[in-house]
């Protein structure tokens, strides 16, 4: 079973590489935001998978945190883009 997890994880990483390229290449800031946001969501699943790979499934709290963090960061970035300020 762990092989399946492992393959999934590797696919996720490969996807992350592609997204990273997009984040760097742009061409607009929105591409960067999009790509980083997508990497963020991938990490959420990834951290869950890691729990399964290591056989410690009880740490899914981590994934929740990841999700929230990604969300808030994205909101902050967008507010910066839209309003030019954070407060």
């Amino acid at each position: 079973m762990s092989t399946v997890y492992l393959i999934t994880a590797v696919v996720l990483i490969v996807g992350a590489f592609m997204l990273l390229y997009r984040a760097l290449a742009g061409p607009t800031v929105y591409d960067t935001i999009l790509a980083t946001n997508a990497i963020g969501t991938k990490t959420i699943v990834f951290v869950t998978l890691l729990g399964y790979i290591s056989g410690r499934t009880e740490f899914i709290d981590m994934a929740i945190i990841y999700a929230l963090i990604t969300f808030i960061t994205t909101i902050a970035i967008l507010k910066y883009i839209e309003k030019g300020r954070l407060d």
């Binding site: 399946v4 999934t8 996807g15 592609m18 997204l19 997009r22 997508a38």
Partner: peptide, 21 residues
């Protein structure tokens, strides 16, 4: 079931990333 779902997820995931690229 899990394997199937995971495989499906993998494919969609990969295609999504590839699309973004």
């Amino acid at each position: 079931v899990c394997t199937v779902l995971l495989a499906l997820g993998c494919v969609i995931n990969f295609s999504g990333s590839y699309g973004v690229l």
